[in-house]
Design a protein around this nucleic acid. Structure first.
Lengths: 245, 245
DNA sequence: CGTTATGTTGATAGCCGTCAACATACGTGG
DNA sequence: CCACGTATGTTGACGGCTATCAACATAACG
């Protein structure tokens, strides 16, 4: 991860880790946990910082502890597509291949729990459970990528934005909101971790189209928007209907 | 694979297997090879037959021996997207999860070398090399899916068709063609394994747009088309330029 | 308080989808 | 072998969705 400054290298305590039960290290027992703890380090990035570029030799892998990481790909002429979003407890990096196949950038402030590649790959060989977890994780990512193929290839701008909001709502901690004034029971509130530009690059749209679709969803009273980034989904079921399933 | 008739269940001889050196069993030694050989069976499908549907319990996994398999996803209203193509030596099916996450259909006549799920998963646990191979395979598929996200999200119809033809040219056995009459040295000839409708579903386009783009590539003398399915790429480099990279 | 980044809205254009007609290839039965 | 129906592919006319260009509004920041 050459492009950025390491802000913090305090060894972590897996015992206190907020994401451990959901991350690939979640099933490790005391002994194996000690071994992975021994090589784990914390690393922080600020919003907008690049974690690595496509083609870089990346000597670390790790888990996202907090924040959101964008995985992106570029065309020679500058067109860009976000090909994945990694949230807290997601794994970042590709085992058995140092060369990054896409760019990684901090969409928000990000904390990573990183492992140097070589010792981590040794652990993968030694601890069968760990490789199984990572494998399962990769299969889930493949499923997610294929869901997104369907979205990009066959859905309208409105459906894309609706589905994106639902996806974020599921993966981002919700905010208590709209309480007390008789709102719908299945209302959900959250802060968007992505700018309109990032949303556009994720959905294969332009900034303007994303903005217009959000305005339309607001006009149609499917969502409410405060300060651009704070979204309240008034009715999840109606937004799901608008998302095409 | 419930929807179809098993045409052939003769045990295979891995020793004579044409795809073994490229498939996940390629690195296995004599003993392990015997074990996987013992559970392998051949299965054949005709063009257009469904191998399994999304949501099916699939009790087999396996390699594509010959032909091309389409992996597809459907929206409730019938819109369709092909999310992957599996060629000879590619692995078909998802380990550790019986329920299929997409539909599989024979795009051409297809031969599979299948393994019943349970014994195969046992082998995966026992033979570390095998799991590593399958894991590496899955990572490659994830990379391919992400490349396709960029294509679907950010490239024009012309670029999509050009890139598709180049992808097929790389994965399908080429035909000797155009020889002797002074054609370009880097000319390539092959038969399309997909109909225009399949290409459309793979590229997120309509049949008509695919057809028009092929006509345009022909008019621009980047390719030549005989009998709809036989493509000659006159100049690979010019087609690459048209594909956006 | 000025400057820059981010987001919204409007007018217009163009790419691709839709609808339709036609052409060609393929398969079946007479 | 031909007639017929069906599947597949092409081409044209037209329309709509989304991109582009532009102006403006608002927020963030030093």
């Amino acid at each position: 991860m050459p492009a950025s400054v390491v802000r913090n290298l305090i060894p972590l305590q897996c015992n206190n880790c907020v994401i451990r039960h959901r991350a690939i290290c979640g099933t490790l027992n005391g002994d194996d946990l000690t071994r992975i703890n021994a090589i784990a380090r914390q690393k922080k990035y600020r919003t907008g910082e690049t974690i690595f570029y496509e083609g870089d030799e990346v000597n670390y892998l790790g888990n996202v502890v907090s924040g959101v990481v964008k995985l992106g790909k570029l065309l020679p002429d500058g067109r860009q597509q976000i090909v994945g979003l990694q949230f807290a407890s997601d794994f970042l990096g590709r085992a058995f291949k140092g060369k990054a196949t896409c760019q990684a950038e901090a969409a928000t402030d990000v904390e990573l729990c990183i492992f140097p590649r070589k010792p981590f790959e040794s652990l993968l060989s030694d601890i069968h459970d760990l490789e199984d977890q990572l494998f399962a994780n990769t299969l889930d990512e493949l499923d997610a990528a294929r869901d997104w193929l369907l979205l990009l290839g066959r859905q309208s701008a409105r459906e894309k934005v609706a589905k994106f909001l639902l996806m974020i709502a599921r993966r981002i901690p919700n905010i208590g909101c709209g309480s007390g004034d008789g709102e719908d029971a299945d209302a959900i509130c959250f802060d968007l971790p992505l700018s309109r530009a990032d949303m556009a690059d994720f959905l294969g749209l332009t900034i303007e189209t994303v903005s217009r679709q959000i305005t339309r969803l607001k006009t149609d009273e499917l969502i409410d928007v405060e300060q651009n980034r704070t979204i309240t989904v008034s009715s999840v079921s109606r937004l799901e209907a608008a998302s095409g399933q």
